[in-house]
């Protein structure tokens, strides 16, 4: 006899244009704890309600069809077992992915997601200086391969896109998946447009990332989009220098902390936006200063500053030694 647990599912149901508002429908089963959420949803479809709309195909975390929000986390239904979810939350609440409009029930319209993917020119761009060797594969050193060997693990499920607060705040931000894909082309030795790609993505693209790493936490395939975005930022500075508000902000941040161990908000704004840019932000700055007048003063140097600087030295050493 297989051990079972009692599982309560609360599933988001909504057909735009038909239902006046979304609702949650409860389903209850006794199931083995290792049952994937996808299997439970298919059981609902087969035994209770065939009208539950959802996408599914491979059931093995390789097609990327069944991404949804399970107990507030964006993940694959096929890869999520009910046991741990029930142990932590007592029930399983299932919603459609975020940052994409709901088409019906658990199905979202992925058009914005694919549109953002297209924006990064997701194909190799020939390098006239290095034509492909005729009839032969391009040679690659193990170091070159290592830089992007794992990037094809991305299954374009959209979990990272759903989890991304920067995407939610700024529709212009392409989102983690597209940027991770961009990284794949930027470091590909066969690609001839590395520099152009980096220049193109910087305004409104790269630097909007909040570095919250929710994409990396959500990714079912360990693609680590936030780390790839960090890599792209370094490559962008290397390619173009510190020319963007975003990169200036990063450098100013680094200098601020080195100097005092704390941020000097006023200086940070001037370094990031320049004098004119800062002036344009004055009304907002005044509002903030009324609440926090202490921000006007340069912060004091913190006590453990020497140790903070040691961290800088260690990181620089590490970078030098590769």
């Amino acid at each position: 006899m297989v051990e079972t647990v009692h599982a309560t599912f609360q599933v988001y149901r909504f057909t735009p244009g038909v239902d006046s508002s979304p609702r949650y429908v409860s389903y209850e089963f006794d199931l083995p704890p290792h049952t994937p959420v996808l299997s439970a949803l298919l059981k609902i479809r087969q035994e209770i309600d065939p009208t539950l709309a959802m996408r599914y195909s491979c059931r093995s975390s390789i097609c990327g069809s069944c991404a949804m929000v399970i107990n507030s986390k964006s993940r694959l239904a096929c890869q999520t077992q009910i046991g741990p979810e029930l142990a932590r939350h007592g029930r399983i609440v299932i919603d459609p992915m975020r940052n994409q409009p709901v088409a019906r029930d658990l199905i979202v319209d992925q058009k914005p997601f694919w549109h953002d993917y297209e924006r990064i020119d997701p194909h190799l761009i020939a390098d006239p200086a290095h034509p492909m060797p005729e009839g032969q594969p391009n040679p690659m050193t193990p170091e070159q391969v290592d830089r992007f060997y794992e990037t094809p693990r991305c299954i374009a499920c959209g979990a990272c896109y759903s989890a991304c607060p920067a995407k939610e705040a700024d529709p212009e931000f392409p989102g983690p998946m597209a940027l991770a894909k961009l990284y794949r082309f930027v470091v590909d030795p066969r690609d001839g447009a590395t520099r152009e790609r980096l220049l193109k993505i910087q305004p409104g693209g790269l630097w909007t990332c909040l570095r919250c790493h929710l994409c990396t936490a959500a990714c079912p395939k360990d693609v680590r989009p936030s780390e790839r975005i960090r890599d792209l930022k370094e490559l962008a500075i290397a390619a173009q220098g510190v020319t963007e508000a975003g990169s200036r902000h990063a450098v100013a941040f680094k200098e601020n902390i080195y100097e005092r161990g704390l941020l000097n908000e006023g200086k940070l704004a001037r370094q990031t936006l320049g004098l004119a840019g800062t002036a344009a932000q004055l009304p907002q700055a005044m509002r903030i200063l009324r609440k926090k007048p202490e921000l006007l003063k340069s912060p004091p140097k913190i006590e453990g500053l020497a140790e903070v600087r040691k961290i800088y030295e260690m990181l620089e050493d590490e970078e030098r030694s590769g």
Binding site: H123, L124, M132, G135, Q136, P137, N138, P139, M140, T141, P142, V145, F148, Y149, T151, P152, R184, D188, R190
Partner: peptide, 19 residues
């Protein structure tokens, strides 16, 4: 296979860079 490599497939490589 060479064509797919030229299209951008990220194959596993040997130490000498060959497929």
């Amino acid at each position: 296979v060479v064509e797919m490599e030229h299209f951008g497939t990220i194959f596993s490589r040997g130490a000498d860079g060959s497929l």
